[in-house]
């Protein structure tokens, strides 16, 4: 479930402004984009690949492994279900603000078709030096350089900062796994931790968590069983409870999902928790993770 150079990628919404910008960036980085979807431009070509009316149409002639959605929120459900029914193994859902009932229906379609959803509201996945899927600045050499640290983040911007901190300290990354800032996501911190644990190139993992939900607590249970070191930063220590801090998932309600309980769970599982992101590289170096 870590994207590889050989994975064939279908871009839903390929002809739009963002779809075009990021597809070009993915292609330039080495991602194997095999086709796109836009019902109004079926039969044409865009950025050197064929455009289909639906993902199911595409699958007939142009098999793909990963679907990546550049689709506005009110249309996201239909596109996601199309991708699942077309047989996508992995669906990277970048869209934010999808109605929650639609997200539930997307997860049903994913379960029924054996598709793994990453997101919604993820910034995507980067396999450093190989390929990327989504909207991360994989091509920015100040942020991403090949190394041995896996990074898991709910947030694209905070994940970018963490990767930058690693690069500035002379460390590098294997994989960036953006799981998304929504409350009901298909791939959890714990799932991503499991994938990075199984990845031979990854020697240590950084979790960039946030307040709200219980993803970090569940990940802590898994981290306890791992041989590879895990360190974490949890955003939102200063955020007032009961307020949605931008991400729909980042809200503390009824004393659940607050900073203290997440930090406690992680530390009890042997995961070092940084006060500020810039401490992460030093913590890794103390664990003998070298560049």
């Amino acid at each position: 479930m870590i994207p590889r150079k050989s994975d064939r990628i279908l871009i839903q919404g390929i002809t739009g402004k963002q779809g075009t910008f990021w597809t070009e960036a993915m292609q330039a980085y080495g991602s194997n984009v095999v086709g796109g979807v836009n019902p109004n431009k079926a039969g044409t070509r865009h950025l050197g690949v064929p455009v289909f009316a639906t993902a199911r149409e595409a699958a007939k002639t142009t098999p793909f492994d990963i679907a990546c959605m550049f689709i506005p929120p009110m249309l996201a459900k239909d596109a996601a279900i199309d991708a699942c029914e077309a047989g996508a193994r992995l669906l990277v859902c970048l869209t934010e603000h999808i109605p929650s009932h639609d997200v539930m229906e997307m997860h049903v379609a994913a379960r029924q078709n054996g598709t793994r959803i990453v997101g919604p509201n993820t910034a995507g996945l980067v396999t450093v030096g190989e390929c990327f899927v989504g909207i991360m600045p994989a091509f920015n050499a100040n942020v991403f350089r090949k190394g041995n640290v896996g990074v898991i983040s709910r947030s694209g911007s905070l994940g970018t900062l963490l990767c930058l901190n690693l690069a500035q300290a002379g460390l590098g990354q294997t994989v960036f796994y953006g799981i998304g800032g929504d409350p009901m996501i298909g791939t959890t911190t714990r799932d991503a931790l499991r994938f990075l644990d199984a990845d031979p190139a990854t020697e240590a993992v950084v979790i960039c968590g946030e307040i709200g939900g219980s993803a970090e607590e569940q990940a802590a249970e898994y981290a306890r069983t791992m041989k590879k070191p895990v360190v974490a930063f949890i955003a939102g220590r200063q955020s007032p409870p009961g307020k949605k801090m931008g991400h729909a998932g980042a809200i503390v309600t009824g004393g659940k999902g607050d900073y203290a309980s997440k930090r406690r769970a992680l530390e009890a599982a042997g995961v070092g928790v940084a006060d500020v992101p810039s401490q992460i590289p030093q913590m890794l170096k103390q664990l003998s993770i070298a560049a």
Binding site: R154, L161, G181, A235, G236, R237, M245
Partner: peptide, 21 residues
Amino acid sequence: ANGAGLTMTTMDVIAHYGGSP
């Protein structure tokens, strides 16, 4: 700041260095 995660983090780092957002 841009992005919810980075904005929350910026607030946290300000508090860490004795300031208040």
